[in-house]
Amino acid sequence: MELDAAGRSYPAKPSDVYLYATCLVDQFAPEAGLDAVRLLEREGITVHFPEGQTCCGQPAYSSGYPDEARAVARSQLDLFPEPWPVVVPSGSCGAMMRHHYPKLFEDDMVLGPQVRALAERVFELTEFLVHVLHFAHPDRGEQCTVALHTSCHARREMGCHETSSALLDSLDQVDVTEQARVEECCGFGGTFSIRFPEISEAIVSDKVESLRACGAQKVVSADCGCLFNILGRAAKLDQQAGRASPSLEGEHIASFLWRRTSEAPR
């Protein structure tokens, strides 16, 4: 798994894109998906949401069930017939499609070429906003301090810590502070959090602590898996401590960006 963002070439601004929202966004964080659509449409792009999309297959892939992962991935391959970019508001799922799909179909003489061609046009949302759309919009929000958490796959396979950072830095009223051990995993790891609950809890507790301690009012992330893990842990700790208001708030970066730069702030 190598960071290849530096070597990647980006297309000119397209007229149309596909949004591959991911199963987590579809079911648990639809607002983030909607905000991603709004961000893209504002640039004059027509956003297509293939109705057949379900999940990229990563849960099975990383849990050691390649056949099951391949079956799910297979069902997604034909959803993108036009040569438009596929934008994914998750570095983890984006990395799955961009880096692991070609491996999953490596030996497939028929699908292999199709999968490799698809992988080439998969972009994580922040990467797409920065490198293809050259995102630049006035910040209409109030002054605030945030911390950025980048998922491990987004960071190490897609280089998205840099693009997420660039987006936050482009907002005048937003100060970005850095939590201790910013590069460390949040402890989610998909089914790892279920298989090894104590270890996962230990890791995420440390992440919550470092985020609370860094002076940020909010943690922003481009990955829902990490956000649910971190915020869920923080909320549980609040419950246990009897705190009425949350000690840590968080938001998907798509929603954060849209809320701060849209004409009519929500």
């Binding site: 579809d26 639809p30 607002e31 909607l34 298989r195 809890e201 507790s205 649910f228 909320a235 549980k236």
Partner: peptide, 17 residues
Amino acid sequence: AWTRSRTPLVPAPKRLR
């Protein structure tokens, strides 16, 4: 195991689709 350490995951009332 999820709620051992975290609050429950609850689906949104409406899916993105």
